[in-house]
């Protein structure tokens, strides 16, 4: 009787152990097990809606949980504290965090700016009847960006500098994207830097001076970083990059355009036709080290960094183009 009870208890313990530790999951990503990973998000990224609905993450043995983050610096804090495994940050923020000494590595690219001949996806918008017609007219004016020292400010400042305007002569004001165009139209700011896709119904009320991103060559608008210790622990980061690469290939296939906008439309609650009509940034999972290097140089030129860091150890081998 006693031995039978001991046997039953051992079986229950084994079962509990299997369900807790096994069940196809592991913490860091060892062979053949599905890894549960948390990925920070700002909302509806087209690659996430696609990869989740098409099972791309699952195919790469990743059970992705999306976690909202308030911005790039919050995403870096999340990956370092273990609150998230992959942090969604723009390239400038990622370089800056790495340069400060945070133990992070870039594991994947996601979004880069649309370069000519593609239609510009970004603009420096002024009111339709504004007397501002050139970068020089912006000296002494207020420009709205979504965050101070964020990607939009850096790119706009670089564009101004390239056009002979000292960025210090301009006041950058942080305003949420949704409030930028109303602020331009009411005269509270003189210009706003944002994407065409964020104009809402104000296309007719504003005009763009230029796409500032175009003057910066290739810019990583979205990348993913992970803690160095997480990358070293297993192959989950590599599989995440492979999933992103496959997602980018599928999204860049013109045959999938309509479906990708339909899926994004469900997330963003914006008609798919509207999304399809808006110029889009490009999807690119591979990380171009030369482009990152240029971005670092821009920050040095804008005195945001004292000297350019060595980015070799920053970008994982598997993520490079």
């Amino acid at each position: 009787m006693i031995s039978r009870r001991i046997g039953a208890a051992a079986a229950v313990t084994a079962l509990l152990f299997a369900s807790a530790c096994g069940g196809g999951y592991d913490a860091a990503g060892s062979a053949n097990a599905t890894t549960k990973v948390s990925v920070t998000t700002f909302g509806c990224e087209i690659w996430n809606t696609w990869a989740i609905s098409k099972g791309v993450y699952v195919k790469h043995r990743l059970d992705v949980e999306l976690v909202r983050s308030g911005g790039g610096s919050a995403a870096v804090a999340a990956v370092l504290s273990g609150a998230a495994d992959f942090g969604y940050v723009n390239g400038y923020t990622a370089i800056n965090a790495y340069n400060t000494g945070f133990p992070i590595q870039m594991v994947s690219g996601a979004n880069v700016n649309a370069l000519p001949p593609a239609k510009p996806a970004q603009g420096v918008f002024v009111g339709k009847d504004s007397p501002i017609t050139s970068p020089a007219d912006l000296a002494g004016k207020k420009i709205a960006v979504n965050e101070i020292n964020g990607i939009n400010q850096i790119v706009t400042a670089s564009w101004l500098k390239a056009n002979g305007v000292e960025p210090e002569s301009v006041s950058f004001v942080a305003l949420p994207f949704a409030e930028q165009i109303p602020a331009v139209l009411s005269g509270r700011v003189d210009a706003a830097q944002l994407g065409y896709s964020l104009l809402g119904n104000n296309n007719d009320g504003v005009r763009s001076l230029a796409d500032p991103f175009a003057s910066s060559n290739k810019v990583y608008i979205a990348t993913y970083v992970a803690a160095k210790s997480f990358v070293a622990k297993g192959d989950a980061a590599k599989r995440f990059h492979e999933a992103m690469t496959e997602t980018a290939q599928q999204l860049n296939d013109p045959a999938n355009k309509d479906e990708s906008f339909r899926l994004l439309s469900e997330c963003q609650k914006v008609p798919a036709e509207t999304l399809a009509a808006q110029p889009q940034n490009a999807i690119e999972a591979a990380v171009d080290l030369a482009a990152l290097d240029r971005m670092a140089q821009q920050m040095v030129d804008l005195k945001m960094m004292q000297k350019k860091p060595d980015l070799e150890p920053f970008v994982t081998d598997f993520a490079r183009s």
């Binding site: 790039g72 965090a97 965050e147 101070i148 020292n149 942080a174």
Partner: peptide, 12 residues
């Protein structure tokens, strides 16, 4: 306040 946000964005 502006300075605090600005330094946070720059990881300073």
């Amino acid at each position: 306040g502006f300075y605090i946000v600005s330094q946070q964005r720059l990881f300073r």
